[in-house]
Amino acid sequence: MKYGAILKAARVRSGLSQEELAHMLHINQSDVSKYESDRKEPHMSLFRDWTALTQAQDVMVAFICGMDGLTILQNMMSVVTGFIGGWFI
């Protein structure tokens, strides 16, 4: 299953660098890169911790409920680009 882009979008949305997230997850930055590029598959506990630290629990719920990755990314991007200064544009 490909979800590296979803993990990356969650990290970027939270404003964390790969290094910062790796430190928080107690893993190497190179592992974050591998997860985000689908070269390594995270265990469910790491996926859970990743989404909790990036405040993307909504992403995890959508993913577990079967929403496809493209729809999740589109929803994430609409929130990022549509909410400026407390107002949706």
Rank of each mutant, 00 (worst) to 15 (best):
Q74T: 12
Y35S: 04
M67A: 11
N28S: 15
Q18V: 06
V12S: 01
K2Y: 08
H26A: 10
M1G: 15
P42T: 01
K2A: 09
M77Y: 10
A5Y: 07
T51E: 01
R48A: 04
F83N: 11
G85E: 08
S33R: 10
V59N: 02
R13P: 00
S45E: 08
Q57D: 05
E41P: 15
L46P: 10
D49P: 07
H43S: 11
D58H: 03
T81D: 15
A5V: 13
N28R: 15
H26N: 12
D49W: 07
Q18T: 07
G85W: 03
R39S: 08
V12E: 09
Q29N: 10
L53H: 03
A52R: 07
I27E: 09
L53I: 06
D58K: 00
Q29I: 07
S30L: 07
S14R: 10
M1W: 10
F88L: 13
R39A: 12
L70M: 11
Y35I: 00
G85S: 06
S37A: 11
V32R: 03
W50C: 00
L46Y: 09
M60L: 14
L73N: 02
V80G: 04
F63P: 01
A10H: 00
A52M: 08
A9E: 08
E19T: 13
A9Q: 07
H43Q: 11
L25K: 02
S45Q: 12
M1D: 09
M67N: 12
A62T: 04
I84S: 09
L70I: 12
T54Y: 00
F83Y: 09
L46R: 11
Q29M: 08
Y3P: 01
H23A: 11
C65M: 06
F47G: 08
L70E: 14
M1P: 15
N28H: 15
F88Q: 15
I27C: 07
I89M: 12
I89T: 11
A5F: 05
Y35L: 04
F47N: 04
C65N: 11
M67W: 11
A22Q: 01
R13K: 08
G86E: 00
H43F: 13
E20W: 06
Q18S: 09
V59W: 03
E41L: 14
G82L: 03
A10G: 00
I72D: 00
G82A: 04
V12H: 05
H43G: 15
M60C: 08
G4S: 03
D31A: 15
I72Q: 01
I64H: 05
S14M: 03
E36H: 11
A52I: 02
L21I: 01
V32D: 01
V59D: 02
F63E: 03
Q55F: 12
I84M: 06
Q57V: 02
M77Q: 14
S17I: 00
V32P: 04
F47L: 12
T81Q: 13
K40E: 14
L73V: 00
M60E: 09
G15C: 01
I27N: 05
A56D: 02
E19H: 14
G82Y: 02
G85Y: 03
L46G: 05
